[in-house]
Design a protein around this nucleic acid. Structure first.
Length: 419
RNA sequence: GGAGGCGUGGCAGAGCGGCCGAUUGCACGUGUCUUGAAAACACGAGACCCGCAAGGGUCCGGGGGUUCAAAUCCCUCCGCCUCCGCCA
């Protein structure tokens, strides 16, 4: 949820943000009037409750006929209070609805527009020129005995797969490398629950526009997380953190689950877009003033990890309309895939400012000891999809794949050969 | 799955319809004393909402109900504990 004080003081900034995202500006005015209605309702209810409180003391002291008369009047007062409280409850519910309808306020320098309006910030590495016809990751994976899509479909359906033999080993090596880097950089490694309660899933902003993306267990009313960002954001829900020593940094290792509803026919080949994959995710709680600097650090740590798999990539500044509702800014790193002749997302880091933390009531104490809403950020460190980039970029004419230097100690081999 | 117990401020732990936003202890902060510290004494400390402020309101696990009035009575959900049963 956005900060209401910012909204009152500068509604035009919020309108501009909505425009950049291509969202309805009218929601801003709806929120403003809901806010006013709520304030009026609270003021009236408070006054009536104060009156009733004083009245109650009178009744407590009164005896006999005087008491009977007061009791009669008390009923009237109680009815008035009840009505005022009903109005307050309703006004608050309306405000909450309007409040949740508005996505985070994007930074002014975020490029406006949709999916294709990103700005490329940099390129790192040169796409390799092949003197043979490169195979895609699925052909390679099949030859190496690393990926079995057919049996994945047999057992679980489309967009499911088995990582087999060296494929499974490669994923563990990769995620271990990511976890080690995170720990070396001061992150606390976490293995979180992957089923969460509705309020946690909602608090991270995933039950809004993207609710159809999320698996839900109806019997338990629990949601399967699409990223460990969700449980890590919930980890400190309803807490006041001590951030005086700097940001709190966590690295979550988990399986991730996505319905991929509405992506029928998109990336159906291989493990680029799947229902279940594994990921090491960085998650940070910090003071809002530190958020932009921390966002830059997260991107730097992602690039540190990307360097270890030695693939060419670019970094983009995602356009406003392509941000999640929680993000105020997002940088993606995309690796070059030779068989698709294009860049595909390997990491994504979002600065959610206070948007998530406000929903989840994560706060910290400022210099004066006053509780303030914290900022949250997240960023990818490695995922199953990285295997695609590794296989395709490091393949050899004989169908083998050279293992990047950094992965060799963890994998225990220099090259993956066809079986 | 069955039976029972419990959930109060940072922690411990009273209160069981109005005088209770709440006794007390520990921990915490400030002051007095002291060369400094400890001890002792005094005072002060929670969160949320409305308000420029003065001030007011709300919060005793969450939600709902009874009542003029609920920490206190009822319902429900959540969590924790104990016992029995069942099972990877």
């Amino acid at each position: 949820m956005i900060d209401l004080r910012t909204l009152r003081e500068n509604p035009d900034a919020v309108r501009a943000s909505q425009r950049a995202r291509g969202e309805d500006e009218g929601l801003v005015d709806a929120l403003l009037s809901a806010d006013e209605r709520r304030r009026a309702a609270i003021a009236r209810a408070d006054a009536l409750r104060a009156e009733q409180k004083q009245f109650g003391k009178q009744v407590g002291r009164a005896r006999g006929e005087e008491r009977d008369a007061l009791l009669a009047k008390g009923k009237e007062l109680a009815a008035e209070v009840k009505a005022a409280e009903a109005e307050q409850t309703d006004a608050e519910a309306v405000l909450d609805g309007a409040h949740r309808a508005i996505p985070n306020i994007v930074y002014p320098d975020v490029p406006p527009g949709g999916e294709d309006d990103y700005v490329v910030l940099k390129h790192v590495g040169e796409p390799r020129t092949f003197d043979f016809e490169p195979l895609d990751h699925l052909d390679l994976g099949a030859r190496l005995g690393a990926i079995d899509m057919e049996r994945g479909a047999k057992v679980s359906g489309s967009r499911f797969y088995f990582l087999t033999g060296v494929g499974a080993q490669l994923q563990l090596a990769l995620l271990n490398l990511a976890a080690q880097q995170a720990v070396a950089n001061g992150f606390t490694l976490m293995i979180p629950p992957v089923l969460v309660r509705p309020e946690i899933m909602g608090g991270t902003g995933y039950l809004g526009a993207h609710a159809a993306e999320v698996y839900h267990l109806a019997d338990e009313d629990l949601y399967l997380v699409g990223t460990s960002e969700v449980p890590l954001a919930g980890y400190h829900a309803n807490e006041i953190l001590d951030l005086s020593a700097g940001p709190r940094r966590y690295a979550g290792w988990s399986s991730c689950f996505r319905r991929e509803a509405g992506s029928y026919g998109k990336d159906t080949r291989g493990i680029i877009r799947v229902h279940q994959f594994d990921k090491v995710e960085m998650f940070v709680y910090c003071r809002p003033a530190d958020a932009e600097a921390e966002h830059a650090r997260l991107l730097a740590w992602e690039e540190q990890m990307l360097a270890k798999i030695e693939v060419p990539y670019r970094v983009i500044d995602t356009a406003a309309g392509d941000l999640g509702s929680s993000a105020a800014r997002k940088f993606d790193a995309e690796a070059w895939l030779p068989t698709q002749q294009t860049y595909r997302e390997l990491t994504s880091t979002s600065n959610c400012t206070t948007f998530q933390a406000r929903r989840l009531a994560v706060r910290y104490r400022d210099e004066n000891g006053r509780p303030q809403t914290a900022a949250t950020l997240n960023g990818t460190l490695a995922t199953t999809r990285w295997i695609v980039a590794i296989l395709e970029n490091h393949q050899q004419p004989d169908g083998s794949v050279t293992v990047p230097e950094a992965l060799r100690p963890l994998l225990g081999r220099d090259v993956l050969s066809p079986v």
